[in-house]
Design a protein around this nucleic acid. Structure first.
Lengths: 137, 137
DNA sequence: TATCATAACGTAATGATTACGATTTGTAAA
DNA sequence: TTTACAAATCGTAATCATTACGTTATGATA
């Protein structure tokens, strides 16, 4: 999702446009991969002297809820990245830099049949390793 | 993995067979699904008066390392279940009772090609929802 | 520019997990 | 069987990510 798109989405939903919020969007726009709350705090501390956990987590949850960000759990820590809204897909995630590559394969079609009497609510398919850049570093 | 198998594996590796360790195995053998450290503590407290976090987590890690248990992260908490050693497969996991169903489909073959220059180290494919039992409860 | 609800601050609380010194207990050798 | 000792457990404190909250600041609307 693009920054302007996200800002308009927030406005439409009645949320205020603050400096923190714009900077958080800028961070994830630039990051192009999964980042933690701690990563975000480090970044914002360059600009602001004193960032509250409240601000960090409230906005991460907000962005996640309205679909600006998507999240996953890696090594016991929540990680966030800009949401790819265009179509359903999965991700390769680099263990080193957190950057992602879209994977078009989704095995759910095949799986549905095997779970006839089950109620499927969600699924997760992620591939972990090193991206070409980190592999040769 | 069966309990006796696990105990022999521990002996072979030079680990001692203690009451706690046997009871932990019994718990996961009976559980037949994903359980948290807290779940395990509740169970062990019925038998022992005073179970140390040290004992819980040390043994969970040990069992996970030697392949007696396998683990996944659900709602920010590590969950463990008896390891299925026989062949590669994935799991449907019930959001209610934690019980699992094996899924034979694995999409990795298809994915390899799309990640030619990447180093693949691991992958995760899990399906979440309600099992037939919990669905009708 | 005044108003007011929302956002942010600073900090304390929570919950899972890890760490550690003291004590207990399997195990293997005497 | 007893002894010896490393490994296992205990009790509790520390850590780390996240959540909660009373107070203060600020964006948006009139």
């Amino acid at each position: 999702m693009k920054i302007n798109e996200a800002i308009n989405l927030l406005k439409d939903k009645g949320y205020k446009t603050t400096g923190r919020r714009k900077d958080i969007l800028a961070y994830f726009d630039e990051a192009d991969g999964y980042r933690t709350a701690k990563d975000l705090i480090s970044y914002l501390e360059e600009t602001y002297d004193g960032i509250s956990f409240d601000t960090i987590y409230r906005n991460l949850h907000l962005y996640n809820d309205v679909g600006i960000l998507e999240s996953t759990e890696l090594n016991g820590e929540k990680h966030f990245r800009m949401n790819c809204t265009h179509h359903h897909h999965h991700h390769f995630i680099c263990n080193d830099c957190g950057k992602t590559k879209e994977i078009e394969v989704c095995p759910m079609d095949e799986v549905q049949q095997a779970l006839a009497n089950y109620s499927i609510e969600d699924h997760k398919f992620e591939i972990y390793g090193l991206c070409p850049m980190c592999k040769h570093a």
